[in-house]
Computed example of a mutant assay.
Amino acid sequence: MQRERKPLPFGYQFAAGAFAGVTEICVFYPLDEVKTRMQLDTGKSQGLFQTFRNIMAHEGVGRLYKGLVPPLLLEAPKRAVKFAANDFWGKTYMSMSDTKTMTQSLSFLTGCSAGASESFVVVPFELVKVKLQDKSTIFKRPLEVVRHIIKTDGVLGLYQGMESTFWRQVWWNGGYFASIFQIRAQLPKAETPQAQLMNNFISGSIGGCIGTMLNTPFDVVKSRIQGHNHIPGVIPKYRWTYPSLYVIFREEGAMALYKGFVPKVLRLAPGGGVLLLVVEATLSFFRNALGEPYI
């Protein structure tokens, strides 16, 4: 029987998560740029490849990485909140259920609650990113966006789209963590470190796909709300999540709720796998470096 390894201190787990998150962002960020462009388009949406070609032909390859700084700056506080929230909500729900074992339903609740907690940190960074990614943006740097928002709408203006971001994070995290819990249980037991890494990649990729299927409509609404430029005296067309879902469905059809789904799933499905892969590989490196009793 395999001896249970001692959990690594929080600092090492946090560092592994942050490093994995930065790796995932740098590799897949151009897909996020394309996704946002497609979601902000209220007309007939162009496909993934056409949007890529248009950006590179008219704005240059570098435009695919515009708005990269906010997600990179977000990664550390986001990971800290995610780890702390997952730990807190997981223990809370297991205590309430009088069980010491995590189940799929508890994993779903834990993921949703962690996503809700995470949303309060995510919103300002997402808002700045969307403003920079917009095709018609007048901003060149993140600080320009922040100064403009504070000058126009005050500090609370940085939380434009809070409610829609809340729902986006809730549904993605709930779907992702509930899925990987179930998928890991169904995969063959890993007998080698390489097999364990493959299991993590498979479960993370499928979990990322399911989370994306659940939260894309909410992401479309979030992009529309955050992409809106405030005009005094004019009521925004998109204000609250669920009424906005109905407006998009009524005016553009059901498929419009999944605008940007292809680049989003191409990023978050393998991205979810890469995330788990890098986390586990980094934790394994830390364990080997620290030696007993962690290995």
Rank of each mutant, 00 (worst) to 15 (best):
P7W: 02
F10Q: 04
G11F: 01
A15M: 11
F19R: 02
G21L: 08
V27L: 14
F28S: 11
F28T: 14
Y29L: 04
P30Q: 10
L31W: 06
E33I: 10
V34R: 03
R37A: 13
Q39N: 13
L40W: 03
S45C: 14
G47V: 04
T51M: 05
M56V: 15
E59M: 09
G62C: 10
G62E: 14
Y65V: 02
K66S: 09
V69I: 15
P71M: 06
L73N: 04
L74Q: 12
E75I: 05
K78A: 15
A85F: 03
A85P: 08
W89R: 12
Y93A: 08
D98Q: 12
K100C: 08
M102P: 00
M102V: 06
S105Q: 11
S107F: 07
S107W: 06
S107D: 06
L109C: 13
C112G: 04
A116K: 09
E118F: 01
L132S: 00
Q133A: 14
D134S: 10
E144D: 12
I149C: 01
I149T: 12
T152I: 00
D153P: 00
G157C: 00
Y159K: 11
M162I: 10
F166S: 06
W167H: 13
G174M: 10
G174R: 07
G175W: 03
A178P: 02
A178L: 05
S179D: 02
F181H: 15
Q182M: 12
R184P: 00
Q186W: 15
P188N: 03
A190D: 08
P193Y: 06
P193F: 04
N199S: 14
G204P: 03
S205F: 05
G207K: 10
I210V: 15
G211M: 00
M213E: 04
N215Q: 13
H230T: 05
P232R: 07
P232G: 01
P236M: 00
T241N: 11
F249Y: 14
F249R: 08
E252L: 12
L257P: 02
Y258L: 09
G260Q: 06
F261M: 10
F261A: 08
V265D: 07
V265W: 02
A269L: 04
G271Q: 12
G271S: 11
G271M: 07
V274G: 04
L275R: 12
L276D: 11
L283V: 07
L283M: 15
S284E: 14
R287Y: 08
N288H: 10
L290F: 14
P293H: 13
P293N: 12
P293A: 12
I295T: 12
